[in-house]
Amino acid sequence: MGILSEFISSYFLWRDPMIVGAVSGAVCGFLGVYVVLRRIIFVSAALTQISSFGVALSFYLEGLGMGVLSSFIHPFILSTVLTSLAAVFFAMKRDFSRISQEGVIGFGFLIASGAVIILGDRITKGAHDIANILFGNAVVVDPGDVYIIPAVALAALVIHIVFYKDFVFVSFDEQTARLFKYPVRTLNTVILITIAVVVAVATRALGALPVFSFLALPPLTSLFLTERLKLVFAISVIIGALSATLGYFFSFVLSIPTGASMAVCASVFFVLGLLWREVKVRT
Protein backbone atom coordinates (compact mmCIF):
# COMPACT_ATOMS: atom_id res chain seq x y z
CA MET A 1 0.00 0.00 0.00
CA GLY A 2 1.39 3.38 -0.97
CA ILE A 3 2.11 6.07 1.55
CA LEU A 4 -0.71 8.26 0.30
CA SER A 5 -3.35 5.52 0.35
CA GLU A 6 -2.18 4.49 3.82
CA PHE A 7 -2.51 8.09 4.92
CA ILE A 8 -5.99 8.42 3.45
CA SER A 9 -7.20 5.17 4.97
CA SER A 10 -6.06 6.42 8.39
CA TYR A 11 -8.17 9.57 8.13
CA PHE A 12 -9.87 8.86 11.48
CA LEU A 13 -6.46 9.34 13.12
CA TRP A 14 -5.54 12.64 11.52
CA ARG A 15 -8.90 14.27 10.81
CA ASP A 16 -9.19 16.21 14.08
CA PRO A 17 -5.56 17.31 14.40
CA MET A 18 -5.57 18.26 10.71
CA ILE A 19 -8.66 20.44 11.20
CA VAL A 20 -7.16 22.06 14.29
CA GLY A 21 -3.82 22.61 12.54
CA ALA A 22 -5.31 24.02 9.35
CA VAL A 23 -7.64 26.41 11.17
CA SER A 24 -4.84 27.52 13.51
CA GLY A 25 -2.49 28.03 10.55
CA ALA A 26 -5.13 30.03 8.68
CA VAL A 27 -6.10 32.33 11.53
CA CYS A 28 -2.49 32.80 12.67
CA GLY A 29 -1.61 33.58 9.06
CA PHE A 30 -4.30 36.27 9.02
CA LEU A 31 -3.40 37.86 12.36
CA GLY A 32 0.30 37.52 11.63
CA VAL A 33 -0.04 40.14 8.89
CA TYR A 34 -0.51 42.72 11.65
CA VAL A 35 2.38 41.20 13.58
CA VAL A 36 4.71 41.57 10.59
CA LEU A 37 3.46 44.96 9.34
CA ARG A 38 3.60 46.48 12.82
CA ARG A 39 7.09 44.97 13.25
CA ILE A 40 6.13 43.19 16.46
CA ILE A 41 7.24 39.67 15.59
CA PHE A 42 8.95 39.53 18.96
CA VAL A 43 5.57 40.17 20.61
CA SER A 44 4.18 37.03 19.02
CA ALA A 45 7.26 35.09 20.20
CA ALA A 46 6.72 36.42 23.74
CA LEU A 47 2.97 35.66 23.64
CA THR A 48 3.55 32.07 22.50
CA GLN A 49 6.04 31.56 25.34
CA ILE A 50 3.70 33.15 27.89
CA SER A 51 0.93 30.89 26.59
CA SER A 52 3.26 27.90 27.02
CA PHE A 53 3.96 29.10 30.54
CA GLY A 54 0.19 29.16 31.22
CA VAL A 55 -0.15 25.56 30.03
CA ALA A 56 2.90 24.42 32.03
CA LEU A 57 1.68 26.25 35.14
CA SER A 58 -1.67 24.55 34.77
CA PHE A 59 0.01 21.12 34.65
CA TYR A 60 2.12 22.04 37.64
CA LEU A 61 -0.84 23.22 39.74
CA GLU A 62 -2.78 20.12 38.72
CA GLY A 63 0.14 18.04 39.98
CA LEU A 64 -0.10 19.77 43.34
CA GLY A 65 -3.58 18.32 43.66
CA MET A 66 -5.52 21.56 43.53
CA GLY A 67 -8.65 19.73 42.50
CA VAL A 68 -11.05 22.34 43.84
CA LEU A 69 -9.50 24.94 41.56
CA SER A 70 -9.32 22.57 38.62
CA SER A 71 -11.71 24.57 36.47
CA PHE A 72 -9.59 27.71 36.99
CA ILE A 73 -6.32 25.98 36.29
CA HIS A 74 -7.51 24.34 33.11
CA PRO A 75 -4.70 24.83 30.57
CA PHE A 76 -7.01 26.61 28.13
CA ILE A 77 -8.28 29.14 30.70
CA LEU A 78 -4.99 29.81 32.46
CA SER A 79 -3.08 30.14 29.21
CA THR A 80 -5.72 32.44 27.69
CA VAL A 81 -5.88 34.66 30.77
CA LEU A 82 -2.11 35.02 31.10
CA THR A 83 -1.56 35.63 27.39
CA SER A 84 -4.38 38.19 27.23
CA LEU A 85 -3.02 40.02 30.28
CA ALA A 86 0.40 40.16 28.65
CA ALA A 87 -1.18 41.46 25.43
CA VAL A 88 -2.99 44.22 27.32
CA PHE A 89 0.23 45.11 29.11
CA PHE A 90 2.18 45.29 25.83
CA ALA A 91 -0.58 47.39 24.26
CA MET A 92 -0.98 49.84 27.12
CA LYS A 93 2.61 50.55 28.06
CA ARG A 94 4.91 52.34 25.67
CA ASP A 95 7.94 53.12 27.76
CA PHE A 96 9.22 51.68 30.96
CA SER A 97 11.71 53.84 32.81
CA ARG A 98 13.58 54.56 29.58
CA ILE A 99 13.70 50.90 28.61
CA SER A 100 12.23 50.39 25.15
CA GLN A 101 9.03 48.42 24.72
CA GLU A 102 11.06 45.87 22.77
CA GLY A 103 13.26 45.37 25.83
CA VAL A 104 10.26 44.68 28.04
CA ILE A 105 8.84 42.25 25.48
CA GLY A 106 12.23 40.50 25.46
CA PHE A 107 12.05 40.31 29.23
CA GLY A 108 8.55 38.73 28.97
CA PHE A 109 9.82 36.20 26.42
CA LEU A 110 12.85 35.21 28.48
CA ILE A 111 11.16 34.94 31.85
CA ALA A 112 8.30 32.91 30.36
CA SER A 113 10.77 30.60 28.57
CA GLY A 114 12.79 30.08 31.73
CA ALA A 115 9.69 29.51 33.84
CA VAL A 116 8.37 26.88 31.40
CA ILE A 117 11.60 24.90 31.66
CA ILE A 118 11.71 25.19 35.46
CA LEU A 119 8.07 24.11 35.75
CA GLY A 120 8.76 21.29 33.33
CA ASP A 121 11.42 20.02 35.67
CA ARG A 122 8.89 19.97 38.50
CA ILE A 123 5.95 18.49 36.65
CA THR A 124 5.35 14.86 37.47
CA LYS A 125 3.99 14.22 34.01
CA GLY A 126 7.54 14.70 32.80
CA ALA A 127 9.60 16.73 30.41
CA HIS A 128 7.98 15.08 27.43
CA ASP A 129 4.80 17.13 27.95
CA ILE A 130 6.79 20.34 28.16
CA ALA A 131 8.67 19.47 24.99
CA ASN A 132 5.30 19.00 23.31
CA ILE A 133 4.15 22.42 24.46
CA LEU A 134 7.31 24.14 23.30
CA PHE A 135 7.91 22.41 20.01
CA GLY A 136 4.48 21.05 19.21
CA ASN A 137 3.34 17.52 18.72
CA ALA A 138 -0.25 17.64 17.56
CA VAL A 139 -0.41 13.97 16.66
CA VAL A 140 -3.63 13.89 18.60
CA VAL A 141 -5.59 16.83 19.92
CA ASP A 142 -8.15 17.26 22.64
CA PRO A 143 -11.61 16.52 21.11
CA GLY A 144 -12.80 19.89 22.41
CA ASP A 145 -10.16 21.71 20.34
CA VAL A 146 -11.98 20.73 17.15
CA TYR A 147 -14.77 23.07 18.27
CA ILE A 148 -12.91 25.59 20.43
CA ILE A 149 -10.26 26.57 17.89
CA PRO A 150 -12.62 27.13 14.92
CA ALA A 151 -14.98 29.07 17.23
CA VAL A 152 -12.16 31.31 18.51
CA ALA A 153 -10.84 31.72 14.95
CA LEU A 154 -14.28 32.68 13.67
CA ALA A 155 -14.79 35.22 16.46
CA ALA A 156 -11.36 36.75 15.79
CA LEU A 157 -12.02 36.94 12.05
CA VAL A 158 -15.44 38.59 12.55
CA ILE A 159 -13.87 41.24 14.79
CA HIS A 160 -11.13 41.82 12.22
CA ILE A 161 -13.55 42.06 9.32
CA VAL A 162 -15.78 44.57 11.16
CA PHE A 163 -12.83 46.72 12.20
CA TYR A 164 -10.60 46.04 9.19
CA LYS A 165 -10.46 49.69 8.13
CA ASP A 166 -9.67 50.83 11.67
CA PHE A 167 -7.05 48.19 12.43
CA VAL A 168 -5.19 48.96 9.19
CA PHE A 169 -5.46 52.70 9.90
CA VAL A 170 -4.00 52.56 13.42
CA SER A 171 -1.35 50.10 12.29
CA PHE A 172 -0.26 52.25 9.34
CA ASP A 173 -0.64 55.77 10.72
CA GLU A 174 -1.34 55.91 14.44
CA GLN A 175 -0.63 59.64 14.64
CA THR A 176 -3.32 60.62 12.14
CA ALA A 177 -5.73 58.16 13.77
CA ARG A 178 -5.20 59.99 17.07
CA LEU A 179 -5.69 63.34 15.30
CA PHE A 180 -9.02 62.01 14.00
CA LYS A 181 -10.03 61.04 17.56
CA TYR A 182 -10.03 57.32 16.81
CA PRO A 183 -9.86 55.10 19.92
CA VAL A 184 -6.28 54.16 19.08
CA ARG A 185 -5.39 52.54 22.39
CA THR A 186 -8.56 50.43 22.38
CA LEU A 187 -8.04 49.35 18.79
CA ASN A 188 -4.40 48.43 19.43
CA THR A 189 -5.45 46.47 22.51
CA VAL A 190 -8.15 44.59 20.60
CA ILE A 191 -5.65 43.64 17.88
CA LEU A 192 -3.25 42.24 20.48
CA ILE A 193 -5.96 40.51 22.52
CA THR A 194 -7.32 38.71 19.46
CA ILE A 195 -3.76 37.61 18.69
CA ALA A 196 -3.25 36.59 22.34
CA VAL A 197 -6.41 34.49 22.56
CA VAL A 198 -5.70 32.74 19.26
CA VAL A 199 -2.10 32.15 20.36
CA ALA A 200 -3.30 30.72 23.69
CA VAL A 201 -5.70 28.18 22.20
CA ALA A 202 -3.46 27.27 19.27
CA THR A 203 -0.33 26.89 21.43
CA ARG A 204 -2.10 24.50 23.77
CA ALA A 205 -3.17 22.37 20.81
CA LEU A 206 -0.13 22.60 18.54
CA GLY A 207 2.77 23.95 20.61
CA ALA A 208 4.67 27.24 20.66
CA LEU A 209 7.00 26.59 17.72
CA PRO A 210 4.40 26.03 14.97
CA VAL A 211 2.17 28.84 16.28
CA PHE A 212 5.05 31.33 16.25
CA SER A 213 6.05 30.19 12.78
CA PHE A 214 2.45 30.60 11.49
CA LEU A 215 2.34 34.14 12.87
CA ALA A 216 5.58 35.17 11.20
CA LEU A 217 6.33 33.16 8.05
CA PRO A 218 3.07 33.09 6.02
CA PRO A 219 2.65 36.90 6.24
CA LEU A 220 6.30 37.44 5.29
CA THR A 221 5.88 35.03 2.37
CA SER A 222 2.72 36.72 1.13
CA LEU A 223 4.48 40.09 1.25
CA PHE A 224 6.94 38.63 -1.28
CA LEU A 225 4.09 37.57 -3.55
CA THR A 226 1.75 40.55 -3.78
CA GLU A 227 1.58 44.32 -3.51
CA ARG A 228 -2.10 44.38 -2.52
CA LEU A 229 -2.85 44.53 1.19
CA LYS A 230 -6.09 42.53 1.05
CA LEU A 231 -4.33 39.86 -1.03
CA VAL A 232 -1.53 39.76 1.56
CA PHE A 233 -4.13 38.71 4.13
CA ALA A 234 -5.75 36.15 1.78
CA ILE A 235 -2.47 34.55 0.66
CA SER A 236 -1.17 34.46 4.22
CA VAL A 237 -4.30 32.57 5.33
CA ILE A 238 -3.81 30.03 2.53
CA ILE A 239 -0.09 29.56 3.25
CA GLY A 240 -0.78 29.22 6.98
CA ALA A 241 -3.40 26.52 6.38
CA LEU A 242 -1.23 24.74 3.80
CA SER A 243 1.85 24.81 6.07
CA ALA A 244 -0.13 23.16 8.86
CA THR A 245 -1.78 20.60 6.58
CA LEU A 246 1.39 19.61 4.72
CA GLY A 247 3.35 19.70 7.95
CA TYR A 248 0.96 17.25 9.50
CA PHE A 249 1.03 15.04 6.39
CA PHE A 250 4.85 14.81 6.36
CA SER A 251 4.87 14.28 10.10
CA PHE A 252 2.46 11.39 9.67
CA VAL A 253 4.14 9.66 6.76
CA LEU A 254 7.76 10.31 7.82
CA SER A 255 7.21 9.84 11.55
CA ILE A 256 8.77 13.19 12.42
CA PRO A 257 7.67 15.65 15.15
CA THR A 258 4.50 17.45 14.03
CA GLY A 259 5.26 20.96 15.28
CA ALA A 260 8.72 20.98 13.74
CA SER A 261 7.34 19.59 10.48
CA MET A 262 4.74 22.41 10.33
CA ALA A 263 7.40 25.06 11.03
CA VAL A 264 9.67 23.63 8.33
CA CYS A 265 6.80 23.60 5.81
CA ALA A 266 6.09 27.28 6.58
CA SER A 267 9.83 27.94 6.14
CA VAL A 268 9.86 26.17 2.76
CA PHE A 269 7.00 28.43 1.59
CA PHE A 270 9.02 31.40 2.85
CA VAL A 271 12.10 30.37 0.86
CA LEU A 272 10.00 29.73 -2.27
CA GLY A 273 8.40 33.16 -1.84
CA LEU A 274 11.80 34.78 -1.42
CA LEU A 275 13.12 33.06 -4.56
CA TRP A 276 10.03 34.08 -6.53
CA ARG A 277 10.51 37.67 -5.41
CA GLU A 278 14.21 37.64 -6.37
CA VAL A 279 13.43 36.23 -9.81
CA LYS A 280 10.68 38.83 -10.32
CA VAL A 281 12.95 41.70 -9.30
CA ARG A 282 15.73 40.54 -11.66
CA THR A 283 13.49 40.03 -14.70
Binding site: V36, L37, K165, V168, F169, F172, T176, R228, L229
Partner: peptide, 19 residues
Protein backbone atom coordinates in the same frame (compact mmCIF):
# COMPACT_ATOMS: atom_id res chain seq x y z
CA UNK B 1 5.39 55.83 6.74
CA UNK B 2 6.85 52.35 6.99
CA UNK B 3 7.51 51.09 3.44
CA UNK B 4 6.72 47.53 4.53
CA UNK B 5 3.00 48.38 4.20
CA UNK B 6 1.71 47.56 0.71
CA UNK B 7 -1.04 50.19 0.75
CA UNK B 8 -2.26 51.67 -2.53
CA UNK B 9 -2.64 55.38 -3.16
CA UNK B 10 -6.43 54.97 -3.09
CA UNK B 11 -6.22 53.25 0.29
CA UNK B 12 -3.99 55.94 1.75
CA UNK B 13 -6.17 58.75 0.39
CA UNK B 14 -9.24 56.98 1.81
CA UNK B 15 -7.66 57.25 5.27
CA UNK B 16 -7.98 61.03 5.08
CA UNK B 17 -11.73 60.59 4.80
CA UNK B 18 -11.84 58.57 8.04
CA UNK B 19 -12.02 61.87 9.94
Amino acid sequence: FDPIFPVSVREIVSMGRYV
